[in-house]
Design a protein around this nucleic acid. Structure first.
Length: 700
DNA sequence: GCACCTACTTAGAACCCATGGT
DNA sequence: ACCATGGGTTCTAAGTAGGTGC
């Protein structure tokens, strides 16, 4: 298979390459320097045109690509396709009798099929793109609408929920500047309250946060305020802070009835604004509230932390819905920025945010048809990778020997992505975000090479900040070839130079696309996560054990994935204490158990002497009690183990985003575990498609 | 090929509130 | 009935990836 990707072609585009390894290296160096200069130029003068240093990157392998395409065509002509076409279409057009609330039909016989490729028949692919392709079959986003009671008769008319307007502070809550009371204009006061609310947070001690906040705050001040307030250190927000604390205390202290009232109000708002109609289905909207103004809280060392996130007005909002549906009306006296009818995108509302200038969207809930189908598709792509991952692995191992630097770098990077489940690592604009990296954007300073470490050869130590500034630290032995390549990539580079200077995510993904239709770097994470879960479940589940023990096994399998994907969490602040509490409970339960056992013993002795019915019964009762307590103790011990092992690991992210839910559903069915033990209500809604679809024989 | 733009998924923190133990 | 705790929910930032136009 890997022979499909001929290396002859690779040699053509760099005629100057020589076999002699020394010269070879020199050639690389030359290139690197050029590249580096180019990079520096880029950073200095972004507006200038790029140079032509990257010409040799553009060589494409059309022949291979076409071969691949052919293969996939063949592959998808699956013998089961026709049989299932009908059901599939049903599940997608949303008009079947067997339909569930969420709009998914239940496929009845999907179970026993040895191959699952029918999900990928051209029909399926097409219907997913139906909104794009069929002009006469328009995406229907109707708006179930009641802006307030005045509009009750209007069936289709609601819209996004705006943040409540600012309520000025009561006059007894004072702000002090330089020790003296100072009345702020409403605009300045609002921004001040954002800061005041955060006084207990570490953010407000950080220089960048304070600097950014102060700069943006001053923009909201009147000329007089601006003239007077020149030093944040002289600002005293503590009365404001106490006011908000008291407010939240008061909220907590509300009576049941008051709380109930609020709950009902929220429910009403949810029912009014939290749904829309898409393709004849009433679908839950994920985020129907527009983000309120506040201070930007970036993660990690974010250069923009503390900046003012401005209030979003109707004039900032683009509404997207179908032409024939009544679009929501903007609040009286305002207008939307735009109303458009783009049926090629899934969002209902968008606006441009002022911190990064990026676009924010209102979209549907994960339980919606459109999200569910996409999710399904994602796992099907990962399953297709399973079928060709061996070929791809062989290929990149071959590529470690390539004469071309760019190919070696690509191959080593792909190896990391595959083996370590690293993220792709898009380039980021410097100074706009926290300094974090993924695979392709790794720098020399992020890895250390040890020819020998703790008795292992060729060890690479990774230490870098990834997404959300979560640290990735790992020491891994790698193949000798990888190690040698890394040494080569690092030669004559500064710590802050790119490790893979001839690679980026775009190049990598173009290559992956040629290896498999739909393949991108992130598919490896999905694939490796899911396959790890499946394999770990097989390994860890013990048929003899009871349900809690089996669930522990499940959580451990889940944990293996979370560790692979580096899904971390801050250990809960109360962790130690809650662990202690649990231990106390366990000790008490042990005590209780030995008491119960003692009682059983004496009851037995008693029964032996008396030999009457009554004492026999007593023995039975005691036996049952011992059993019950044993079970309880076991449950507690399992809980303790589970919690301890979970201290710094977040299971939710992988469960929600990386693990094919059909694996879990199949596991539940196989071992008679109620699916509710694995997925809560929200998760069951999100994975409804999988719960309907998978039976115990499902294989990822 | 690159900068920029757009649309979508993935992510941990913060917040909320039901639960179950006392 | 009360309260602490942890699981569930919400929030929105931070990624991936593909398109466009020069």
């Amino acid at each position: 298979m890997s022979g499909d990707h001929s290396h002859n072609e690779d040699q053509i585009d760099c005629g100057s390459r020589v076999n002699d390894s020394h010269k070879h290296k020199d050639k690389y160096k030359e290139k690197e320097h050029k590249h580096k200069d180019h990079k520096k130029d880029k950073e200095r003068e972004k507006s200038k045109h790029g140079n032509s240093d990257h010409k040799d990157f553009s060589d494409k392998k059309h022949r291979d690509k076409e071969k691949e395409k052919m293969k996939h065509k063949d592959g998808s002509t699956d013998k089961y396709k026709d049989k299932h076409k009908e059901k599939k279409m049903k599940s997608l057009d949303g008009k079947v009798k067997k339909e569930k609330e969420n709009g998914f039909a239940s496929p009845q016989h999907m179970k026993s099929e040895p191959e699952d490729d029918f999900y990928h028949s051209p029909k399926y692919e097409k219907s997913l793109k139906r909104e794009r392709d069929d002009d006469d079959n328009e995406l229907l986003i109707g708006w179930l609408y009641f802006v307030d009671s005045r509009w009750e008769e209007e069936r289709y008319t609601d819209g996004p929920v705006f943040a409540p307007p600012y309520e000025p502070l009561p006059s007894n809550v004072k702000f002090y500047y330089d020790g003296k009371v100072m009345r702020l204009s409403p605009e300045a006061e609002e921004v001040a309250t954002f800061f005041a609310k955060m006084l207990d947070h570490e953010y407000t001690t950080k220089d960048i946060f304070r600097k950014n906040f102060f700069k943006d705050w001053r923009k909201e001040m009147t000329a007089e305020e601006k003239a007077k307030i020149t030093d944040l250190k002289k600002c005293n927000f503590s009365e404001m802070n106490e006011f908000f604390k008291a407010q939240s205390e008061a909220r907590k202290a509300m009576t049941k009835e008051e709380k109930q009232k609020i709950k009902e109000d929220n429910e009403r708002i949810l029912q009014e604004y939290g749904f829309c109609i898409m393709d004849n289905h009433r679908e839950r909207i994920a985020n129907f509230r527009i983000e309120p103004p506040g201070l930007f809280r970036g993660r990690g060392d974010h250069p923009k932390m503390g900046m003012l996130k401005r209030r979003i007005r109707p004039e900032d909002i683009i509404i997207n819905c179908s032409k024939d549906s009544k679009h929501p009306e903007p609040p009286p006296g305002t207008r939307w920025k735009e109303v458009r009818h783009d049926n090629k995108v899934t969002w209902l509302v968008s606006w441009t945010e002022n911190i990064q200038g990026s676009i924010k969207y209102i979209m549907l809930n994960p339980s919606s048809r459109i999200k569910g189908e996409k999710d399904w598709q994602k796992y099907e792509t990962a399953r297709r990778l399973k079928k060709c991952v061996d070929r791809i692995r062989n290929q990149y191992r071959e590529d470690w020997k390539s004469k071309e630097m760019r190919i070696r770098q690509r191959a080593v990077a792909l190896y990391f992505i595959d083996k370590l489940a690293l993220r792709a690592g898009n380039e980021k604009e410097e100074g706009e975000t926290a300094d974090t990296v993924g695979c392709c954007s790794l720098r020399v300073e992020h890895i250390k090479l040890y020819p020998e470490n703790d008795g292992q050869e060729y060890v690479v130590e990774f230490d870098f900040l990834g997404k959300d500034s979560i640290r990735y630290y790992n020491k891994v032995p790698v193949e000798k070839r990888v190690f040698k390549n890394l040494q080569l990539f690092m030669e004559n580079k500064e710590p802050d130079d790119d490790l893979f200077d001839r690679l980026n995510t775009s190049i990598l993904n173009k290559h992956l696309q040629e290896l498999m239709d739909g393949l991108t770097a992130k598919v490896f994470r999905t694939y490796n996560a899911s396959i790890t879960l499946q394999q770990q479940l097989k390994e860890l589940t013990n048929a003899e054990e009871n349900i809690p023990a089996k669930i522990l096994s499940y959580n451990r399998a889940n944990r293996a994935v979370a560790i692979l994907c580096n899904h971390q969490r801050a250990p809960p602040k109360t962790f130690e204490k809650s662990m202690q509490n649990l231990q106390t409970k366990i000790d008490a339960k042990r005590e209780q158990l030995s008491d119960a056992k003692r009682e059983l013993k004496s009851a037995k002795a008693d029964a032996k002497v008396r030999k009457d019915e009554k004492s026999k019964k007593a023995v039975e009762t005691k036996k049952k009690a011992v059993q019950r307590i044993e079970e309880q103790l076991m449950k507690l011990e399992v809980q303790a183990t589970d919690r301890e092992e979970n201290k710094q690991i977040a299971l939710g992210t992988s469960k929600l985003n990386y693990l094919d839910p059909r694996i879990s559903v199949a596991w539940c069915k196989k071992w008679g575990i109620p699916v509710e033990k694995i997925y809560n209500k929200t998760q069951r809604e999100k994975f409804a498609w999988a719960i309907d679809m998978a039976d115990e024989d499902f294989e990822f």
